[in-house]
């Protein structure tokens, strides 16, 4: 079944030069392994295709039940150079939460994911 990341995680984003970072935090600790397995850097890069010009780095923070993504070439030069409304990458967080994950139905039920009952 398809599950929106918005229903599985919360997030905060910020900037470093022309790069946006998005920290994605599982809404429940027991959902973190699912995120860590399915939310790959390829998956995130495909999601932002046409939005960012560079690649995606991914880091795991199992202690915080969180993943951190670095989106390169996300900010039209970043900082003061950028012409974008979101020059500092503040809302790349919710843009990532639009992503939909394919979760096996029995696993979704076992984990009590929204919409799986």
């Amino acid at each position: 079944m398809k599950v929106r990341l918005l229903d599985l995680a919360h997030a905060r984003s910020g900037d470093k030069g022309d790069m946006a970072n998005v920290g994605v935090i599982a809404l429940r600790p027991e959902w973190y392994p699912l995120l860590a397995r399915l939310l790959t850097s390829d998956r995130v890069a495909a999601h932002f295709s046409g939005v960012i010009s560079g690649g995606v780095d991914r880091f795991e923070l199992p202690n915080l039940h969180a993943l951190n993504f670095l989106l390169h070439g996300a900010l039209d030069g970043g900082g003061t150079i950028s012409l974008k409304t979101d020059a500092q990458g503040k809302v790349f967080s919710t843009a990532l939460l639009r992503l939909e994950l394919d979760v096996p139905a029995d696993e979704a039920r076992r984990l009590g994911l929204p919409g799986s009952a």
Binding site: H10, A11, R12, S13, G14, D15, K16, N21, G23, I25, D57, F59, E60, L61, P62, N63, L64, H65, A66, N68, L70
Partner: peptide, 30 residues
Amino acid sequence: QTVTEQLVYEMGDPTSYITPDVVADFTSIR
């Protein structure tokens, strides 16, 4: 949750948060 959101803000490689004094490992935080 509020503290975790701030911890991941402007985060790079969480295992090496480089400062002039020390390199902090954010994957060790409890």
